[in-house]
């Protein structure tokens, strides 16, 4: 199937009457996923959004329930967002990040109703990346600029039009309902050519990384590697796979709500115990956790690396802490594999 770029705004307008539609919109010098009210608001050629797509499913601040206590007793309200959504213009790395987050929010021990309800009610329409940025390394972490994992539909930008490739039944249904024209052989060939020409030039070698992390928890390399890190939350909040949260009560007198907020392992409060003891008392332990969680613990638990190579942390770290360099330093370190 194929849809011309000119038709996209009206296609989105039609979707808006049936769904909450999210798409990248311009906010100053960057784009962010926002719910759109008009198809013309979507900015589809702006590269990856500043914040990852996770915020639609796992918002930075989410009200889990609200309560109010009166003489008659306590009243509790736990709204779960079950509105139908389409997220339009997702990049393949972000879509893949959701399949990683699924492990966390939907496993045999726990199913998170807030996240899952949104996930199940959402159609993800992706756009492949014709010219991956120099900070992108998706192909090094099992992804790719036209990877379809997690998507329902993939659009391939062939210049004036998008060649539409259904990935799931949900996606196929959406495309059929939209009545897109059939793609000619020439269109398909153009899409194939675009895919072939999109080269992710940056490679990050993760060979042997896990084996090293399995044994180097006490390695002196951690004393140095974190040194310039400021311990802020920029990399974790902007990372599509970081998912730690903190639950707090916002209450005034007898009314309040319980809120789930993004948290970051870089923060001093992250593992602070009630006793005052903090097992990760300095930035060294905190930065080590960031790396360990992504490249060891997540692999131990779910057999996947918790990084999709989007490069957001690289571009946004205030001190140019580059995860590619850090991983290379760890791989090159002399941690003993036999201890």
């Amino acid at each position: 199937m194929i849809v011309s770029k000119k038709e996209i705004p009206s296609f989105l307008d039609k979707l808006i009457s049936d769904y909450q539609v999210f798409a990248p919109v311009q906010k100053g010098s960057y784009t962010l996923f926002k719910q759109i009210c008009s198809g013309t608001d979507a900015v589809l050629d702006g590269g990856i959004t500043k914040l990852p797509v996770k915020e639609i499913f796992f918002p930075q601040s989410e009200k889990l329930f609200s309560y109010n206590v009166t003489n008659e007793g306590a009243k509790l309200e736990a709204p779960v967002d079950d509105r139908k959504k389409v997220v339009f213009g997702v990049r393949p790395c972000d879509a893949r990040s959701l399949t990683l987050l699924d492990n966390v929010f939907n496993n045999d021990k726990y199913q998170d109703p807030y996240y899952l309800t949104r996930r199940n009610n959402t159609i993800l329409v992706g756009i492949g990346c014709n010219s991956p940025a120099s900070t992108c390394f998706c192909t090094s972490v099992n992804g790719g600029p036209f990877d379809t994992k997690g998507l329902d539909l993939l659009l391939v930008d062939t210049g004036d039009a998008y060649v539409v490739e259904p990935v799931s039944d949900k996606g196929k249904e959406l495309a059929e309902k939209a009545g897109f024209a059939a793609a000619s052989d020439a269109d398909k060939a153009a899409a194939a050519k675009v895919k072939e020409e999109a080269v992710v030039s940056c490679r990050v070698n993760t060979d042997g990384l896990k084996a090293k992390l399995d044994v180097n928890f006490y390695d002196p390399i951690w004393d140095r590697i974190h040194e310039k890190c400021l311990g802020c939350g920029a990399c974790t909040y902007l990372c599509p796979t970081c998912h730690c949260f903190d639950i707090v009560d916002d209450a005034v007198d007898c009314n309040g709500c319980r809120v789930r907020n993004w948290d970051s392992c870089a923060f001093p409060l992250f593992t602070l115990h009630g006793s005052g003891h903090n097992p990760r008392s300095t930035n060294k332990e905190r930065y080590r956790n960031r790396i360990m969680h992504k490249f060891k613990y997540f692999v131990d638990n779910f057999n996947e690396i918790a990084c999709v190579g989007c490069g957001r942390c690289i571009k946004n770290c205030p001190v140019n802490m580059d995860i590619r360099v850090v991983l290379e330093d760890i791989r090159g370190s002399e941690a003993r594999l036999d201890s």
């Binding site: 914040l51 930075q60 400021l230 311990g231 802020c232 939350g233 920029a234 909040y237 970051s264 923060f267 205030p318 001190v319």
Partner: peptide, 9 residues
């Protein structure tokens, strides 16, 4: 986004 990069920098 309350990342506190400003404070920490």
């Amino acid at each position: 986004i309350r990342c506190y990069a400003c404070r920490n920098a």
